[in-house]
Design a protein around this nucleic acid. Structure first.
Length: 212
DNA sequence: CTCCCGATAT
DNA sequence: ATATCAGGAG
């Protein structure tokens, strides 16, 4: 029986905003293409690991055509340490080919077009839209957002798309991006997956999952 | 549902 | 030895 806690949402969100003013993404990027690549690489990997790889990767691959024309086994080696390297290399190259052939070499700035890229679903698309283009299409639901939204009682769903829908109704549209980043920060710093530090949590007194 | 997969913390 | 990491495809 999952505890629902929707009435505590406003208070919890205010406290988390105070705890993490101006949350910033941890992935390093300078262009929408770099953001797209970094986000695809970030699946089941840490931001630290991704940044380590993209530092060299972005020097070597400067346009979508560099990915589209790359030798696939060489691209695999270049991203190896992020894990899932065969899938990710294939997705990067196929996405680059779709972008160069169907979108004139420019990373698309709509949800509909981004979802046409292999390896890109709503979580990745939401990040690229929000941080790359300033478009508020939805809320990026990654493993941290999913875990914290569940623990805090903001949703009873398990499907990320349904969780996103629940959160979109709860959170102010102009705060969607900050909401994702804040939950990710709190998940990394305090509300750990394995052993949450409820004693250090600013909202433990409002959290239905708190063990303190 | 399973599979992809290396790096790191515990 | 095992759980986890800005997930997505088949």
């Amino acid at each position: 029986m999952t505890a629902s806690n929707l009435s505590n949402f406003p208070q919890i969100w205010e406290l988390l905003k105070k705890e993490y003013p101006d949350p910033q993404p941890a992935l390093h990027f300078k262009t929408p293409l770099e953001l797209l690549v970094a986000t695809i690489l970030s699946a089941q990997s840490t931001d630290v690991q991704v940044n380590k790889v993209t530092r060299e990767l972005f020097k070597k691959y400067r346009s979508v055509f560099d990915y589209a024309d790359a030798d696939i086994s060489e691209l695999e080696k270049d991203i190896y340490s992020t894990g899932f390297y065969r899938n990710k290399a294939k997705h990067l190259q196929q996405s680059a080919r779709v972008i160069s052939e169907e979108f004139d070499g420019e990373v698309p700035s709509t949800m509909e077009d981004l979802l046409k890229l292999p390896g890109v679903a709503r979580k990745t698309a939401n990040i690229v839209l929000a941080r790359g283009f300033g478009v508020k299409a939805g809320i990026a639901v990654d493993t941290h957002v999913k875990r914290l939204a569940t623990r805090l009682g903001f949703t009873e769903n398990k499907d990320p798309v349904k969780i996103e829908k629940d959160l979109m109704e709860l959170v102010d549209r102009n705060e969607w991006d900050d909401f994702s980043l804040t939950l990710i920060l709190h998940g990394r710093n305090v509300c750990f997956a394995r052993k949450p530090a409820c004693g250090q949590c600013v909202v433990h007194h409002l959290c239905p999952s708190s063990i303190v």
